[in-house]
């Protein structure tokens, strides 16, 4: 009987031979769990200096037809400046604040994700934290992109069964 045969100590035994990969009922759930943020389109993105005057930042938002600028210094994320910041802190005070540096009116310490995080993390920032634009960093904490709601919905549609 083979079970009584002593095993060859040098024979390779795969430690994962009994591993059953998780089975997902929905392809979208699988994508959220298994795909990383880097697989959601997160480029192009626009970074500005924290010393840029507010009116220049507003012109940049309008001219590039984007809703959010990443404020970074030497690749490190300091904050974000978005349409919502314009609404909340600039619109009614424009003449008083237009020449001030954007660092004074940006949103500090934005919630971000790493490109190696699960793609679901990008949805968490919107669904749980309430932020629509999610900066993406690499493991060196350098800015590498931004995930917008349009990019999230495009990602969701990619994983719908045609």
């Amino acid at each position: 009987m083979s079970s009584l045969t002593p095993k060859d100590p040098d024979a390779f035994q795969d430690p994962l031979e009994n591993y059953d990969p998780k089975v997902y009922e929905d392809p979208l759930e699988e994508a959220l769990a298994e795909k990383t943020v880097s697989e959601i389109c997160h480029e192009p993105f626009v970074t500005i200096s924290p010393d840029l005057p507010v009116h220049k930042a507003v012109e940049k938002l309008a001219g590039l037809h984007v809703s959010c600028l990443l404020v970074a210094e030497e690749g490190k994320l300091l904050g974000v400046f978005s349409d919502r910041d314009v609404l909340e802190r600039v619109a009614l005070e424009f003449d008083a604040v237009k020449d001030r540096p954007v660092r004074e009116l940006m949103t500090n310490n934005p919630v971000y994700v790493y490109e190696t995080d699960s793609s679901a993390a990008a949805l968490t920032v919107t669904a749980a934290c309430g932020f629509r634009h999610v900066p993406v960093l690499d493991v060196e904490h350098k800015v590498v992109g931004i995930v917008s709601p349009q990019r999230v919905t495009a990602f969701l549609q990619q994983h719908f069964v045609k």
Partner: peptide, 9 residues
């Protein structure tokens, strides 16, 4: 189970 349990930031 996928989305609301993520650690972010």
């Amino acid at each position: 189970g996928q989305v609301m349990v993520q650690r972010v930031g």
